[in-house]
């Protein structure tokens, strides 16, 4: 993959630095440019800059010739500055999210009981998302394709962020996370690797299977939802949030996947598209239980102080992914309302 085209001063600063050889002193992010970011959660330039810096820890870019860029101290400074701003915005969004849930202490006797009850409660309220319902009943083939294109930024790297958490937790929580990841990574079968299932779905619609074209078009909110996982997973102090995020993600996946599967059938989309969502109905019904009861409950039993972070991560997942969903729905609505060009 090559570096994405920058779309503003922040991503431009990062891309220019990475193209310079070797990576060295630079002034990213430009403080003035950071000051111009009013709402990092949907700001594409901001999120793209952060996404590029995170990608150095995953598969990297062919046109970044200095392999040391991943741990370049000055790029670390840039990443930390962007992360600070992003984390602050996420915490504000979580604080604004209406909480009718009782305090953790009132939900059970032990931290494990409390966290389990909180996660079940907060994910029970969400039925199939508006996006899933739209895909089920209304979406055109073109709109379905645009959904796959937007989600490709995550699904082509599906489950990779959470793998960074494995060495950061211990005991039963580690075992449960490894079990969940084993299933995500195909259960010992390369052809069932979830990333590959998604790539196969894209290929069946003659869409590209590399990440670059999707990153080039993804909205700021979509990049934010992917960056949220990296933020939580790449910072050890946020490991509780990473696992809470995973639990909320899995617990709100099975029912929407069933709806999306029906939408794919309604539109007569290829078997490979149906297969991806079909796999996730059953898989995520399992993963939900493993994530809530296996990972999160065991994690807070081991480290009770992480309980509030687990809830933070879950709330952040629902809020940030909700935002990305709204942006997507709005784009479909506005395109439908637009006068058709003659």
């Amino acid at each position: 993959m090559r570096l994405p085209e920058p779309c503003g001063p922040l991503s431009e600063g990062v891309v220019e630095t990475l193209r310079a050889q070797p990576v060295g002193p630079h002034a990213v992010p430009e403080p003035r440019a950071m000051g111009d970011v009013t709402y990092p959660l949907t700001d594409r330039d901001f999120q793209l800059a952060l996404w590029i810096l995170y990608e150095l820890h995953y598969r990297g870019f062919d046109d970044v010739e200095d392999p040391r860029a991943e741990w370049d101290p000055l790029l670390m400074v840039s990443r930390a500055a962007l992360e600070r701003t992003y984390e602050h915005a996420v915490r504000e969004l979580v604080a604004e999210t209406p909480q009718d849930a009782p305090a953790l202490e009132d939900l059970g006797d032990t931290p494990a009981e409390q966290v389990t009850a909180a996660l079940v409660r907060m994910t029970a309220r969400s039925g199939p998302s508006d996006v899933a319902q739209f895909l089920h009943r209304r979406a055109s083939r073109e709109e379905f394709r645009s959904y796959l294109a937007e989600r490709a930024v995550y699904h082509l790297r599906e489950s990779d962020p959470q793998s960074f958490v494995l060495p950061r937790i211990g005991g039963a929580a580690k075992v449960a996370l490894a079990e969940l990841q084993y299933d995500e990574y195909g259960g010992g079968r390369a052809d069932r690797l979830h990333q590959t299932l998604f790539a196969r779905a894209l290929a069946s619609l003659e869409m590209p299977t590399d990440l670059a074209p999707y990153v080039a078009q993804a909205t700021g909110a979509t990049l934010a939802s992917v960056n949220l996982m990296s933020l939580f997973a790449l910072n050890r102090r946020l490991r509780g949030a990473a696992m809470g995020h995973l639990a909320a993600f899995e617990a709100t996946s099975s029912l929407p996947c069933e709806r999306i599967l029906r939408g794919a059938r309604r539109l007569g989309l290829p078997e490979a598209v149906q297969d991806y969502y079909d796999e996730h109905v059953e898989a995520d019904a399992v993963h939900e239980q493993v994530a809530i009861r296996g990972i999160c409950a065991a994690l807070v039993e081991d480290e009770p102080d992480l309980a509030p972070d687990v809830v933070l991560g879950a709330t952040a997942c629902l809020a940030v992914d909700g935002l990305a969903g709204e942006v997507l729905l709005e784009s479909w609505r506005s395109r439908r309302d637009a006068p058709v060009a003659g």
Binding site: V281, E282, V286
Partner: peptide, 18 residues
């Protein structure tokens, strides 16, 4: 690991579909 339905509402018996 598999999840076996207990509520009787699954449309993928015997597996849980949430």
């Amino acid at each position: 690991v598999v999840a076996v339905c207990r509520c009787g509402r699954s449309e993928r018996m015997p597996w849980c579909d949430d």
